[in-house]
Simulated assay, not measured.
Amino acid sequence: MLQEFLDWAYARHTNTLSWYIRPLFVLPLAYFAWRRSWKGIALTIVALLTSMFWFPPPERVDPHVQAFLDMEKELILSIGDLSPFHVLGVLAVIGSLTALCLAFWHRSLGWGLVIINLMALLKVVWSVGEGDDSGWAVLLPAVVGLVLCDTAIVWIARRFRLPISLRRP
């Protein structure tokens, strides 16, 4: 039963639409951290984790996407044999989401933008480092998400006359 669910979810994860929307979860995560809403943060994380199988499986899967996801699947299935580098990768994801929430919780748009940009950069670096040529499949969704998130945050800051600074207001 579990294997059937995993196969079902994996087939949907090959739909790159989920790759494009996943970075956009930064915006509600930042909003709920700004509002200091634990419930909103938790719901956003659940949505983020489930978003990979919201879309139907594509009719055709790009070979680079398939190779990259095969690498990720192999990595996940070898969880008992993880190297310190892989453990650091998992901790980096958790740490970056925590840092993002803390930046917006403390009302620092500047640090929030720094963290968002670092998250996108590190995602691409990790993807290419782990997935070789297939890792480049992550580049366009990461850049599109980054541009949309940065633009939205800067627009909101200007709209509400909020300072974009590395200092707390």
Rank of each mutant, 00 (worst) to 15 (best):
M1C: 15
Q3D: 13
E4R: 10
F5A: 12
D7G: 12
W8C: 00
A9V: 07
R12E: 11
T14N: 10
N15D: 09
R22K: 13
P23F: 05
P23G: 00
F25W: 15
L27N: 12
L27K: 01
L29M: 15
Y31P: 00
F32S: 01
A33C: 05
W34F: 12
G40E: 04
I41V: 14
A42M: 11
L43N: 07
T44P: 15
I45Y: 00
A47F: 14
L48W: 06
T50E: 04
M52A: 14
F53L: 13
W54P: 05
F55Y: 11
P56W: 08
P57I: 00
R60E: 12
V65H: 02
Q66G: 06
Q66T: 00
A67N: 03
F68R: 00
L69M: 13
L69S: 09
M71H: 02
E72N: 13
E74K: 15
I76F: 02
L77V: 11
L77M: 14
L77Q: 13
G80D: 09
D81C: 04
S83A: 08
L91K: 11
L91W: 09
A92I: 02
V93M: 05
I94N: 04
S96G: 06
A99D: 10
A99Q: 08
L100I: 14
L100V: 08
W105M: 05
W105A: 10
R107W: 05
R107C: 04
S108F: 00
S108E: 14
L109A: 02
L109R: 06
G110W: 07
G112R: 04
L113Y: 08
L113F: 04
V114P: 03
V114I: 14
I116Y: 03
M119F: 09
M119W: 13
A120Q: 14
A120D: 10
V125Y: 07
V125Q: 11
S127G: 10
S127T: 01
V128S: 06
E130H: 08
D132F: 15
D132L: 14
D133W: 15
D133C: 13
G135A: 11
G135P: 03
W136P: 14
W136N: 05
L140Q: 09
A142F: 01
V143Y: 13
L146D: 05
L146T: 04
L148E: 01
L148T: 06
C149D: 10
T151S: 09
T151V: 15
A152R: 02
A152I: 05
V154A: 07
A157F: 06
R158T: 00
R158F: 03
F160Y: 11
R161Q: 12
I164C: 00
R167V: 08
R168Q: 13
